[in-house]
Design a protein around this nucleic acid. Structure first.
Lengths: 207, 207, 207, 207
DNA sequence: CATGAATGAGCGTTCATTCAT
DNA sequence: CATGAATGAACGCTCATTCAT
C-alpha cells in the first residue's frame, strides 16, 4: 500500500499507523503556519505529541513526513470525489454535484491544499512520481465522469482539458482566495464557475 | 522604481542593474533546479559569476534575491500583456491574441512561472504585498480587456472570474505540462482553451 | 536562581549545571588569552570538551556564555566576602581581614577579574543590569561593613567611597600587576593599602 | 615619534597628521557608542569623512586605529598633568590641584577614558608595550610629584601606591559614574577623595 | 592621492539525524 | 519502543583588506 514506501524500525503495524496519523496531523498544522522548509523535525515531533527520537522510529527523513502529508491530503480529495460520484447512473446533475463537493472540500481543507500543492516539488524521485500519479488518477476520474455524464459525445482531449480546468479552478479558490473573496462568497464562486463550465460544454440549462 | 526597495551598498546605478541581472539569471537557473530554499547564497553568487561578498553588496538578504526574481518575472509577463493589448481598438480578436501571447510566453519562460508561483509565499510582509499587487494588476488588465472587448455586456464579477481563469490556465500549462504534453502540443492546448473561453462568453465563431 | 535567565533545550538540571561549568571554565581560559570578542564559539565548545552543537543546547547566544562567566566570577567574589564577614560581631579586625581575603581572592582568580571587568560592557540590556546589580550589592556589603566596623561614626557617603576604593584597589592589583609586581609582593601591597585605608578612616593602630 | 610606528603609504607628513586626526576623532565617537570590536572600518572612514580606500592609505590594520586613539587619549591626559604640575616649586597645594585637574579631565573626556582603558588589551605586542609605557610614565609623574610635594619624607613604594590610587580613582569616576553619581557630584567626589588622600599621607589641613 | 567594488575567510547559529540509555 | 543529549555539516551573512581605476 501507500505508506509501505516509508520504512519504519517499528514492527507493530497498528502502532505505525497511529503514530503516523499523529505525525500527519501535527505536520499539517505546522506546514500551514510556516511551510515545510521552515518547520523543523523537532517541532513536528512535539506537535505530534512524542519525542524526536520516536519520530525517527517511524520515518527515515524529514521528506518522508512531507510525503505522508501529501499522500494523506490526496487521499482525502480522492475519497471526496469517490464518494460523490454516482458510478451507476452518471448524469450532468452528478457532474455538477461532484464539482460542488470538490470545491467545498478545497474550501474546508483550506491551506492543506496549498501545502501539498506547493511542496510536492520538494519531494524527490520515486516519491514525487507516486504522488503525481495519484493526482493524475484524480484528474482521470473527473475526465471519465465528464465523458460519461454528458448527453452528447465529447472528445477525450477536450474532456481532459475540462477535467484539468475544474481541478485547477478548485485549487485556485484555495490560493487565490485573498483576491477572490473580495468579490465572491464560496457559493457564488462555485455557481459562476459551473455556469461557465456548462457553457463551455455547450449546454443550456435553467440554473 | 521597482527595485529601489532593495538596498545596495554600491552607488553606481548601472552597475547595480547589471549585477542584479546577473544575479536574477543565475538565481532562476538554480531555483528551477532545486527551489528557493535548497539553493544557497553561495551558489547564487557563483552562478552569477561573482563572490559571495559581492552578492551581498547588491542585496541584503537571501529573500531579496527571491523578490528580485519574482519582480523580474512579473515584469516580463506584464510587458508581454501590455505589448499585445490593443488599447485603442479592443476587439474579440485582440483578446484572443493577448491570450495566445500570454500562453506562449508562459511556455517560453518555462519554470520561471513555477518559481514565482510557488515561492512568492516565502516572501515576507511588504515584499509579498508588493508582488501580489503586481499580480492583481495583471489580472485587472485582463479583466478590463475582457469587458471592453466583448460585443455584449458582461458583469464585472464574471469578467473577474474569467480573467482569473485565463491567468491560471496559463500557469497550468506551466506546471502541469508533464501531464498535458502527452496529449497536446502548446498550440492545440491554446486552441482548445480559447474555444472553451469563447463558449463560456457565449460567442459562436468559426475558428 | 541566577542562571535560569538563560534558556537551555536540555531538561536535566544537573546536566545543565555540569555542562555549563565546563563551558565557563573553558571560556575563562580563552577569554583570558584573547578576550571575549576574539574567542569563537567553536573554540569555547572545543575547550569545554564538546561539539558546537552541544554548546548551543545549553545556551542561546554567544553573549550567554559571557553572562555565565561574569555571573560565576561575581558569585565567587560574593561568596568570598560573605564567608569572611563576621556578621555577628563586626570589628575593625574583621574589616581588615575581609579586605585581605578579597585582595587575595583577586590574586588567585587572576585574569578572571579582568575578564569580568572589561567585558561586562559587552553584555546587553537586562543581563548587564543583572550583573551590575550584583556588583552594586557587593559594594554595599563592604559599605555596610565599614560603617558597622568602625568605633566612631562615619558618613554614609564616605563609607561608600571607601567601599568603592577598596573594591577598585583590589581590581587594580588584578590588572596593574604588571606594573606593581616590580615593587611589591601581594602581601606587601595588601599591607600598604590597608595602612592607607586605616589612615584614611583616621585610626591609629600599631600594625 | 609616536605615530611613526604606523606605516602609511602617503608621504606628505602634514596630510598624514590631518587625516589621522580626522580618523581619531571619528573613531572615538564610534568607539564610545559601540566599542572597538563592534565598530567597522567602513564606519570609521565614513565618520572621518573619507572613503574606506583612503583610510587604508594612512593605516595598515584596524588595530592601528585603536592604537592611534589610545595614543591620542594618553597624550591628552599627559598634557593635562604636565600643564598643571608646577615643576619649579612643588607644593601640597599643587599636588591637590593636579589631582583635581586630572579628575576633572576624566570627567570631561567621559567615555574616552573607558575606551582606552578597556580596549588597550586588544592591542598586540609592541603597540601594547608602547601604550602601557606611556601609562607607566604618567604614574611616574604623579609619583614624583607626590614625593617632591610633601613636607615630610615618604617611601618611594608608598608614593607609588598612592600615585596608582589617584590614577585609578580618577578612572573609577570614569566608569563607575553610573553608581557614584547617585550620591555625588563630581566636585563632592573630588573633595572626599582628596580628603582621604591627605589623611592617608597623614596631613591635617583645614579644607 | 582618492575611490569604492570586489574578495573570501570566518563567524554565530541551526537542525536533521543518530544512538546510548 | 521511547527518549533526548550529542553531533557536525552547512547555512546566511559580515567585514577587514586589496587594488584597478
Amino acid at each position: 500500500m501507500t505508506e509501505d514506501q516509508i520504512l519504519s524500525s517499528v514492527k507493530d503495524k497498528e502502532l505505525i499507523e497511529k503514530r503516523r496519523n499523529q505525525m500527519i496531523e501535527g505536520a499539517i498544522t505546522l506546514f500551514k503556519e510556516k511551510g515545510f522548509h521552515k518547520t523543523t523535525t523537532r517541532e513536528i515531533a512535539k506537535e505530534a505529541g512524542f519525542s524526536i527520537g520516536t519520530l525517527y522510529e517511524y520515518i527515515r527523513t524529514k521528506e518522508d513526513v512531507l510525503f505522508l502529508v501529501c499522500d494523506a491530503i490526496y487521499d482525502q480529495v480522492h475519497a471526496c470525489l469517490e464518494e460523490s460520484i454516482d458510478h451507476e447512473s452518471p448524469s450532468l446533475e452528478n457532474l455538477i454535484n461532484v464539482t460542488k463537493s470538490y470545491f467545498r472540500l478545497i474550501d474546508e481543507m483550506q491551506e492543506g491544499v496549498i501545502i501539498m500543492y506547493q511542496e510536492v516539488k520538494s519531494l524527490e524521485g520515486e516519491k514525487k512520481e507516486y504522488v503525481l500519479k495519484k493526482e493524475r488518477e484524480m484528474v482521470d476520474m473527473l475526465e471519465h465522469l465528464i465523458i460519461t455524464s454528458l448527453p452528447h459525445k465529447m472528445e477525450q482531449a477536450d474532456a481532459e482539458i475540462l477535467a484539468n480546468n475544474i481541478f485547477v479552478q478548485g485549487q485556485m479558490w484555495g490560493f487565490r482566495r485573498w483576491m477572490l473573496q473580495k468579490q465572491f462568497s464560496l457559493e457564488e464562486y462555485i455557481d459562476r464557475q459551473i455556469h461557465f463550465l456548462l457553457q463551455a460544454i455547450d449546454i443550456k440549462r435553467e440554473d
